[in-house]
Design a protein around this nucleic acid. Structure first.
Lengths: 105, 105
DNA sequence: CGCTTGCGTAAGTAGCCTCTAACATAATCA
DNA sequence: TGATTATGTTAGAGGCTACTTACGCAAGCG
């Protein structure tokens, strides 16, 4: 999970995820959105995103087309949700064990 | 927002956030959960968490008590949600402009 | 077949991050 | 007050990250 967090912690990578959220874009299209860094830098960011599973790659001739892998972003969102639900579970467990104590008396 | 992501991208800091999620813990209590790193390392992680706003600090005598700042975690969750809602908005805008085109004809 | 286009990879560098060890500070206790 | 406890801060080492430049490789075009 920390991999996902660190991957999105890089602003350019986060922006790339937004770019390919609903459109399928070629590496060059993505690079064109970042005029002040090299195409190589973007290619490396795409590599990180690919390896972390946040984007999927499809090839069409020489073009490498990228799309977001929404399920991975969903997984991250679920992870954040777990901060709340886990504490609710703890509260529920606490309530249950108190109930248990009552029954034992 | 990348600050929040990077801060939680460090496993120990993420664990600390969980630790102080529903309990208020002193720095020493937190450090006790990480036997294989120095207290100093934990203190520095607490500094990062404090500066990123993810935890609040309260002092009681010599003890520094930490609690999570849930609103910041909520802000991060909302940010992830925005990936979906933003694309919905784009879809809605698209639908609206198509509606507009229809009306113009 | 050579040349171009689209893209990834390798090598090197500068900066950042995490850690430990040592020191500093502030509150409490005897 | 001097010693102790709880904590933060500083300095430096080692590793990781993001960048650029240079090169490699495959697909298509003439």
């Amino acid at each position: 999970m920390d991999v996902l967090l660190r991957t999105l912690g890089e602003p350019k990578r986060c922006e790339i995820v937004r770019l390919v959220w609903s459109d399928e874009l070629a590496a060059s299209d993505i690079a064109a959105h970042f005029p002040d860094v090299t195409r190589s830098a973007i290619s490396q960011h795409l590599g990180v995103l690919r390896r972390s599973g946040l984007v999927k790659e499809r090839r069409d001739g020489t073009r490498h087309l990228y799309t977001v892998n929404r399920s991975e972003v969903a997984r991250l969102r679920a992870f954040l949700d777990s901060f709340w639900t886990d504490s609710l579970e703890r509260l529920r467990d606490l309530a249950e064990s108190e109930q248990q104590l009552k029954g034992d008396r």
